[in-house]
Every structure is written in C-alpha cells, then in structure tokens.
Write a protein that binds this DNA or RNA. Structure first.
Lengths: 185, 185
DNA sequence: GTCTATAATTTGATAGAC
DNA sequence: GTCTATCAAATTATAGAC
C-alpha cells in the first residue's frame, strides 16, 4: 500500500481516537515508517491533511450507503444498513465516528475542516430524509422527513459517544432498540 | 471572584470549545490575568486541573437537577427541566456539554479524567432512570427505564453536536420535538 | 499566592541533498 | 518521494525569590 494511503489511514485512526489536536506529523510518520518531512511532502499543512482525511471518510461512508441501493429495497432495510454502519464503526473499529468527534470540537476547528465535517452531516441528512419520505408515517412531508433524519443521526452519534466512554456496547444496543420501537421498524 | 474560581471557569469554557488538548496553562493564565506558574500552584498538573473542572461541572449539573425536586412534580416536568439544561448549554453558553465533548475523545483521555466523565453519565442515567420508572409506559421495569435513560441522554448529546457543527439550533429543536412525540411527553 | 526564570520536550513547518 | 538538519514557537512543569 502506498505511503500516501497509509498516512491517511493512520491519521484517520488518530483523529477518531483523540480529535484534531491529538496527533502530530511525527507520530503519523513513525506509524507509517517514514520521516515527518515526508508527510509534509504529501500534505503541506495539518489542515490540508485533516481535510483530505475527512473528505475521504465522508466519501467512503456515502459510497457504502449508495452501494446497497437497488431501489427495490424497503425503508426498513435502508435504515438497518444505515445503523449498521455506525454499529460497525463502534464495535469493529472500536472508535468514534470521525465526523462525530470533529463535530463535538467544531468551535475550535479551522474553518476549512469544519466545512468538510458539515458536508458529512448534510449528506447524511439528505440521504436519510429521502428514505423517510418513503415511510408510511411521513406521508410526503419533507420537513418531517428531515426532522426524523436529524433525530436519527443525532441519536446514533450520541449513542456512540455514550457507550464508548462507558465501555459498554450494550448502551449503543439499548439506544438502537429504543429507536426501532419508537420509529417502528 | 477568586483566581481559583476564575481558573476553573476559564478552563471549563476552553474544554467545552475544543476538548482536553485544546488549552494550555499559559492561555488559562492569560485569560485569568496571572502567570502560568500561578495556575500550577492551584492545580499541579493538567490532569488535576481537568479532573477538578469536570467534577465541578458534574456536581453543578446534578445539583440543579436535584434542586427542582419537590416530589410533587410530574415525570413530564422532570424531563422538561432535564432537556432545558442541555438546551441552555447549547443556546445560552453556545457550547458543547463538557462531558459530552470529553466522552467523544475518551479513548485519548487520562484514566483519572475518563473516570470522572463516566461519573457524569452514570449519575445522569441513574437520575433519568428513576424518573422513567414512574412513567406509565415503563410500569416498574428497571431495565426499560434504564434503556430510555441511556437513549435520552444519547439523543441530547448527539443533538448538541449535530446542531453545533451546523450552526443551526433548529436541529436541536427538531430532535427534541421528535423525542417528545416518540416518548409521549 | 504570585512572580521571574528556566528546563526539557514537542510541535508545525522549511531548506536542501539524494 | 524520502531523507537530514534545523528553526521558531509552544508545551508541561519546576525552583526559588518576594
């Protein structure tokens, strides 16, 4: 695998563990097996590197969502596959959502990076909103669909944060169970 | 106001803006109007300072909850006052919940500080669980009460993060509206 | 309690050789 | 594309005077 890819992968993991202020070029370089000046060759500044990693994260996230999309699929299946993405991030990667963590510290983020994190949320809300529009309970009410979308992504990001700090994946499961019961799917 | 209090107040604000790695003793000192060595006099290490601030945050938070507690109060009123605490933090302080932000970066936190953040969540879940136990829908099922408690605090923390990064308080309102409709209060 | 002074380390970033 | 070498600034923390 190319060093450019390794750099992005290592950086993604470090941001997902401790946020924007928790990694340095030297640490990244050590984990990749190169020198910090080589990291600067690929990404001149810390903002450049972080924005690239956030963009990659969002693009991968959305492309996974779009993949399983033979429109024959039901709304319930769509929501399940959406929830599964978060569940996998928490239980397999054992880390926060990259954009969730960055959103929490967004007041302290370089504007360029904050914009990229907003893109993650906008795309997610748009995707979810379209799914909810098909749901029986929503009945072609775009505002209600958006409200449910905002509610769902918020609950999922919050559930990750809650269960991570308490070291209890069951807390994530509890929230999903409540969500399913309340949203009826 | 004493410098000791000023230090804690300034630190709380800085953590709520950018997390554990976003503040330095010099910055704190500058904002208080003293020198960084004077901050070290009150709090020898960064962990000491952060733990004290987190403890103070949780204690204040819980004492506000306990205050309005003449047991004549209804479950609906209890939940409303709980939600109001988060809403005020977001809309008046214009910042994240201190323990919410620290929870997001908990994998990178000193163990002592992480423990203190866990205390915030445990106390909140306990308080909410007791309220839900009185709710008609729960019917003396402690596990269901706890599940609803975990669900509610997760949704609120997530809603803060989502609406903060998007600069849209309406997103918080949307989530509350959904919560009320779904939890029926 | 607050100050000056300072130590030891880490940080983001650059210049220039290969 | 990666390296060595280096810089200026910032970081946590301590010693000791007042």
């Amino acid at each position: 695998m190319s060093n450019l890819l390794k750099i992005q992968e290592v950086t993604e993991n470090m941001i997902r563990i401790g946020g924007y202020n928790s990694f340095s070029f030297r640490e990244i370089a050590d984990k990749v097996g190169i020198k910090s000046s080589s990291v600067h060759y690929h990404f001149p500044t810390k903002v450049d590197l972080s924005v690239a990693v956030a963009r990659r994260y969002t693009d991968t996230f959305m492309s996974i969502l779009e993949e399983a999309k033979p429109s024959s699929i039901t709304i319930e299946e769509s929501l399940n596959s959406y929830i599964n993405l978060f569940e996998k991030a928490l239980k397999e990667d054992c880390k926060m959502c990259l954009c969730g963590l960055l959103a929490a510290e967004s007041l302290n983020l370089p504007e360029e990076l904050k914009k990229e994190v907003q893109r993650f949320f906008n795309l997610n809300i748009k995707w979810l909103g379209e799914k909810f529009l098909q749901h029986a309970d929503v009945q072609n009410d775009p505002e209600l669909a958006e409200a449910k979308a905002v509610f769902l992504i918020s609950a999922l990001e919050g559930a990750m944060l809650t269960s991570q700090v308490n070291n209890k994946n069951e807390m994530f499961d509890m929230t999903i169970q409540q969500l399913r019961a309340l949203l009826k799917f």
